[in-house]
């Protein structure tokens, strides 16, 4: 019985929630059970954003991923990747977009931004680093980082490329579908 626990992390406005929506629809199309949990409201004003997605061939109970059970961490921002490592299974995979967004605590000089995120992760887990903004730009829109990251993720999940493409057609507005499919393929090549 296959099941995956995926964490999507980033900063408000980066497209974290759309990415978790795509993977949820994909698993649902396969007939799997899906639960997704995230927090919006006050936390969204430039704060840390995390979305838990649990997909399984059998029933899913908790909407949040228990500590040590995340199979994948797909992160849009370096500091946010570090923040959620405690959810990871030791066999898990981290996919990290190489981008830094300074939080207010760093901007105000009250804290230092960790500059060695990749090393800290590699000491602990398997890591794929992605230059998401560059690949998204190559696809035609720097905002398509979320789709690039899904492309990378797709190589590590048991769904066919066709299933992904069908899901994009279902979830993404037609106007931006082509760019997203291109971004997805570029991500897949990088994965």
């Amino acid at each position: 019985m296959k099941s995956y626990n995926l964490l999507f992390a980033g900063v408000g406005g980066q497209g974290v929630l759309l990415a978790s929506e795509v993977i949820s629809a994909l698993a649902m199309n396969r007939g799997w059970d899906v639960k997704k949990s995230e927090i919006h409201g006050m936390a969204q004003r430039g704060g840390s954003v995390v979305s838990h997605v649990r997909i399984s061939e059998t029933q899913v109970f908790s909407p949040t991923i228990p500590l040590g059970e995340a199979t994948h961490l797909v992160s849009f921002e370096e500091l946010e990747t570090l923040r959620y490592l405690d959810h990871m299974s030791p066999q898990g995979l981290v996919i990290m977009n190489l981008q830094r967004v300074n939080p207010m605590t760093v901007l105000a000089g009250a804290a230092e931004y960790p500059t060695n995120a990749s090393e800290l992760i590699k000491e602990r887990l398997r890591l794929i680093e992605v230059n998401g903004v560059e690949l998204a730009q190559k696809a035609g829109n720097p905002r398509a980082v979320n789709t690039v990251l899904l492309g990378v993720l797709s190589k590590d999940l048991p769904f066919e490329e066709e299933e992904w493409i069908d899901t994009f057609k279902q979830v993404v507005p037609p106007k931006i579908l082509e760019i997203n499919l291109k971004a997805f393929r570029l991500g897949r090549e990088a994965g």
Binding site: L79, L82, L85, D86, H87, M88, P103
Partner: peptide, 11 residues
């Protein structure tokens, strides 16, 4: 947790 979070991350 099985994997620890690095200490003193900025909030």
């Amino acid at each position: 947790p099985l994997i620890n979070v690095p200490e003193n991350l900025p909030a």
